[in-house]
């Protein structure tokens, strides 16, 4: 069974309420229709109902059974403004301006429990999705940055977790400092548990393995590993190590100076910066013909998924059912 079939099956067993704030986007509507028809989710659309219904009719279907929430006329808006202003000590006028922004309104619906999670970004840059989610939903306790991860399904690779690996952070933080890198590792380990049910084995990657090279860039990874270990002593996390030592047992035996529960069998790879993570994802996709899923945002108190602005119907369905696993 492929990874997407597994996620589909799981989603059908317990369909989650997923909020789509860009309700009048035709690709979103097609994806939402399929998610609903196949009982993969209970979608909720945000937007002007007349416009959304008209857009759906133009595509040749109706949206019976799919709720459409209009922020401008929502009976909840006053309550949301009150909640926000109380928490942030803001005047009602400013609170209303924030809540009238669709992404902020959507994030508040998730926070208020009206939906389990939200999928957005087809009409908005990633930064807008992150800012609205960070402002309203907030970050997980102890996590200082939002970050991202990819699930890599690599043909003919038997390591990792049955041929799967998680790569982080390929999309958000260009040059994380040691503290941020530690938080990226912790958030990714949590995502591995919640999304895939794995026991994470986290490798902190570098061009050095256990002191084989000396450089400030290596020091950053060593410091991040120590910080992550202090914050989560029971987590299997090790570094610094090279990528081959992380995923090939024979290399790990040779290069590591002591017995390791991570080296050679890592299922989560944390790259030292965005350059390395992004380049690695692209090369594994192209050279190893890997199927990659993501990038998924992580670090928020509640699940949020960002879409590429060129996302297809299948991309949206994939993001939705994978996010459902975390909701």
């Amino acid at each position: 069974m492929s990874i997407m079939e597994t996620f589909s099956q799981k989603a059908k067993q317990n369909p989650k309420t997923i909020l789509f704030p860009e309700g009048n986007n035709p690709t979103i509507l097609m994806a939402v229709k399929k998610l609903s028809d196949e009982s993969l989710a209970k979608p909720v659309l945000l937007g002007n109902p007349e416009e959304v219904i008209e857009e759906a009719a133009a595509l040749g279907f109706d949206l019976t059974d799919i709720p459409i929430v209009h922020p401008d006329t929502s009976p909840h808006i006053e309550h949301y403004v009150t909640l926000y202003c109380r928490e942030k000590d803001m005047p009602p006028g400013a609170g209303l301006r924030i809540m009238m922004q669709p992404l902020c309104f959507a994030a508040m619906m998730v926070k208020a429990g009206e939906a389990d999670c939200m999928v957005a970004g087809i009409n908005h840059p990633t930064e807008e999705v992150i800012l609205a989610s960070e402002l309203i939903i907030g970050l997980c306790p102890g996590i200082s940055v939002v970050s991202s991860f990819f699930i890599m399904d690599i043909p003919n690779f038997t390591g990792g977790e049955n041929g799967l690996l998680i790569f982080a952070d390929p999309a958000v933080n260009p040059d994380p400092n040691a503290e941020q890198l530690a938080d990226i590792a912790l958030a990714t380990a949590q995502s591995a548990k919640e999304t895939l049910g794995w026991e994470p084995r986290v490798a902190m990657l570098s061009f050095s393995t256990k002191g084989s090279a000396s450089h400030p860039l290596v020091d950053k990874v060593i410091e991040a590993t120590e910080l992550a270990h202090q914050k989560a002593p029971s987590l299997l996390i090790e570094g610094e190590m090279q990528a081959d030592a992380a995923i090939v047992e024979a290399v790990a035996h040779k290069k590591m100076k002591s017995e390791s529960k991570v080296a050679g069998k890592a299922n989560v790879l944390i790259f030292p910066d965005l350059n390395a993570a992004n380049i690695a994802c692209k090369l594994v996709q192209r050279l190893a013909k890997a199927n990659s899923y993501g990038p998924f945002l992580q670090g928020f108190n509640l699940p949020v998924s960002d879409l590429s602005r060129g996302a297809t119907v299948d991309d949206i369905i994939g993001a939705s059912i994978i996010l459902s696993a975390r909701a």
Binding site: M90, G93, A94, I98
Partner: peptide, 13 residues
């Protein structure tokens, strides 16, 4: 960056 959303809302107010 996230505080700038609130800054804009408060200035508009």
């Amino acid at each position: 960056s996230v505080s700038r959303l609130e800054l804009a809302a408060l200035l508009e107010d």
